[in-house]
């Protein structure tokens, strides 16, 4: 059995009631799931001895600007034993702009979630230290949102007085 099929079968068997849609593009597997399930599936994918997705490579978000669910949070996981990369995606609405943090599963998620918060303003529940990563603390905007202009907003960063 191919690893992909094994993965999907294991999720179906072990995580009852978890709804997900697998999509394959350029031989990369992505699973789109409900945002309330993210910690549950992350914990399972990491702890299962056969799957063992022990490396969380990247966490980021996409701003779709005009869709019903404005943001999608994207997780890239890698299983060192199986040499397989998996992408998880969760849609997040602008009204309820929050998702549970996976930093309790992978420590590396700490900074990556901070970066996502800094750039998109998405709140991560239960994050140990949700501060801005790059921008100053008193910066009011989220630079990677599509409504933030490329040239920046004049006056948004305090400059030394003349």
């Amino acid at each position: 059995m191919e690893f992909k099929d094994l993965l999907i079968q294991k999720i179906n068997d072990n995580l009852l009631g978890l709804v997900f849609t697998p999509v394959e593009f350029r031989e990369e597997l992505s699973l789109t799931l409900n945002k309330k399930d993210i910690v549950r599936i992350s914990r399972f994918l990491k702890d299962d001895s056969e799957l063992s997705f022990n490396l969380c490579e990247d966490i980021t978000a996409i701003d779709w600007a005009r869709r019903t669910f404005r943001f999608t949070i994207v997780y890239h996981l890698f299983s060192m034993n199986n040499k397989f990369r998996l992408r998880l995606k969760c849609d997040v609405d602008e009204e309820d702009c929050a998702i549970d943090s996976v930093s309790s599963v992978w420590k590396t998620a700490d900074w990556e979630e901070r970066e996502t918060y800094d750039m998109y303003g998405i709140h991560f529940n239960n994050h140990p230290d949700l501060r801005r990563m790059y921008m100053p603390e008193d910066f009011e905007y989220y630079p990677l949102r599509k409504d933030f202009p490329l040239m920046g907003i004049p006056g948004s960063l305090p400059l030394p007085k003349k």
């Binding site: 593009f25 990369e28 990247d58 996409i62 994207v74 890239h76």
Partner: peptide, 29 residues
């Protein structure tokens, strides 16, 4: 959307690209 990574001298350098079919990436991480 694709994620492509190579082993750079410092470690894993990856690019996550999302295309909506236009000439510019919709998202680049």
């Amino acid at each position: 959307e694709i994620y492509s990574a190579i082993e750079n001298p410092k470690g894993e350098l990856g690019f996550y690209l999302v295309s909506k079919g236009g000439g510019q990436p919709w998202k680049c991480k």
